[in-house]
Design a binder for these strands. Structure first.
Lengths: 204, 204, 204, 204
DNA sequence: TCTTAAGCGAGACGGTACGTCCGGTCTTGAA
DNA sequence: TTCAAGACCGGACGTACCGTCTCGCTTAAGA
């Protein structure tokens, strides 16, 4: 992509493989349109026009606008969310949850995520892809601090990590996607506090 | 259709007031289409055709298909969810949560709710109406057992009920709307158990 | 439909019958585009844009651009070609043939006719409609002077009129559509002269 | 072509000169598509696919599908039409006209001719090439018997041959391209009879 | 003998127009 | 005044071809 590349100059058509330039332009155009005009404002024709790309080029590589948005999300997600690995468990969880809240409510990929989560309610196929390709990686990041905590003896070895994740992030997503309430740090901190309080109880 | 009676056919028009028949037919048609074909399969033209109603009649009384679905949801919701008032707090909460899970995942109004929650991600106006008219009543039902528990001394009087509701139902909605995991009774029971365990802690 | 009309002002939609305004605008736009840009320059989208009409309105009433052009031709044809009924047979035939040549080569409906004749070579359905709706009336006009001549005794009563028409106008159409040669009055006059010379022969 | 040859696969490329194999395949594919699916069914992509040839190879040597069809017609025409040179003028003309009618209505190159004549109505450039390369040779063949007749004294030396050709074949083309009527031998014979009858008149 | 440049297959690209679906507005005539 | 009916303008859909381009292979003339 950088050094040498197949060709420095823009080109149309290429026997081996697609145009990276077109791919990037499409993903960015979709992202931009979503942020600027909302999900209904994202249309294949609009993406094509803004990306300076032919509609057929989009249909050649993606099956729908949702497909484009999923790829855009996956491309962008990584750079936003890596759970911290410093300090004690409480600090790490607090940081991760508050970063997650910020990611979901304030960033462009967060907006894409919310749109895809919305569309997943309307279409089982979208739901499946959304869960596999968008939610999966996110959830893996959510598990990471807990897995490390188990390894380090900060949590009992028989902890049900899936249930723990549901307890920790469930209320967060509920606020973001359902009630629309803001998610201040006090809220995420309180979630962490309650969660950790339970781990110190003799019961379970 | 031609000869005879004042009219064999349903009446067209009514000088005074709207046609209740048309209203019901529209709401049912919208409901049915949602369940049969999903949100994208619900169109104003489709509703009109199935309800035997003119498009204009729909636009006269509703502003969009979402508006129709909200009204359909409000009409149906009541009969499904009334939190129980028997037994102790744990039992009441368990029953309510498991009923809520069933409502969201297995009933027609639950499907409407999920579709509206999805559309709320795409459109702030929908989000506002959805929260006010659909989520509000549900959330009031979620608070009810906790409010009663405070009155009866089963919970401390300074309990933050909104936060409590978020903790209790957040993971449930998260599963239903985000991860798509099933929501068995073990899950809702565990949520209640953790929640009540915390109320017995000296902290808070 | 003419005086007073259902409404002086433009309107959208009408329970009973279509918009005459839209119909006229479409036919004129098609005519204009054909003359200005040729047959390939006539597109449904182009007609719609120039007529200020939605594509669907065109598809509702016509099945293709050829369908539009046929109707445009039929609408316009009448005012151009009425064979004269003054003078003797030779004069009437000369006038009619030279008018026909002018019609085909110099007028807008003539251009439409040539385009449709061309398209008829590509599509049997177009050919059938073209012959029934465009050529038929024209050919009836071609027969008229000969029929009158038979009635008046200027031609023998057993004359094969169809063959006579082929002989008279065949070379004309051949020049216009095939060789592209000009069709001056000398040419049409000579055709008439030869044709009449034969009627004076004892043979037949 | 499969086993043994210097190469199993068809050759790709040739430093000097084009591939005759590709040329033939393209012309045949175009011919076949025209006969099977009509003019609209002939597309550059379709020709390329059926001929097993790259689109670019077509564009390298031809400028359009019409260009391909013209070359296909020229390649095929010769073998069909050579006016006979036996018997008296009447017999030779009768034979030539009835063969011409058969050629135009019943043979593959005849179908190509009709399609090109159609397209010539839509595009002046096509018209020019069509007249020069397709019609010219045919018309030369039409003149040939008349020229010979003049040489042999069967026709007066001052006969206007172009006009004679128009008279003889005009009605034939008119039937084929315009009215779509069948062209039986009686028709062509009658044309010849009338034409010759005039040459025996004192007038002209 | 070894280059090397032209012809070739494949196919991605930016476009244009297609014919369809639906949205939301408007008008009509009957009830 | 509301209703069923349905024509209207508008805009996006997904498809088919257009004509251009790049690519890597094949091949034969000439260095």
């Amino acid at each position: 992509m950088s050094e040498g590349g197949p060709s420095r100059t823009a080109h149309h058509g290429n026997r081996h493989g697609r145009s990276e330039r077109a791919r990037q332009a499409v993903l960015e155009a979709a992202d931009d349109l979503l942020v600027e005009r909302g999900f209904a404002g994202v249309t294949i024709e609009g993406i094509a026009a803004r990306a300076g790309v032919a509609k057929q080029t989009i249909y050649r590589w993606w099956s729908s606008k949702v497909d484009v948005l999923i790829e855009a999300f996956v491309d962008d997600m990584a750079q936003y969310l890596t759970p911290p690995d410093e300090g004690d468990l409480e600090h790490r969880l607090r940081t991760h949850l508050s970063r997650s809240a910020r990611f979901l409510t304030r960033t462009a990929p967060g907006a894409v995520f919310r749109a895809l989560a919305g569309q997943a309610q309307h279409d089982p196929e979208v739901a499946a892809r959304f869960r596999a390709e968008c939610l999966g990686p996110l959830r893996a990041l959510d598990r990471l601090p807990l897995e490390r905590a188990v390894e380090r003896g900060e949590l009992p070895p028989d902890t049900d990590l899936d249930f723990a994740v549901d307890q920790l992030v469930g209320p967060l997503y509920y606020r973001v996607l359902v009630t629309g309430h803001p998610v201040p740090e006090e809220f995420t901190d309180a979630l962490v506090e309650r969660f950790l309080a339970l781990t110190r109880l003799p019961i379970q």
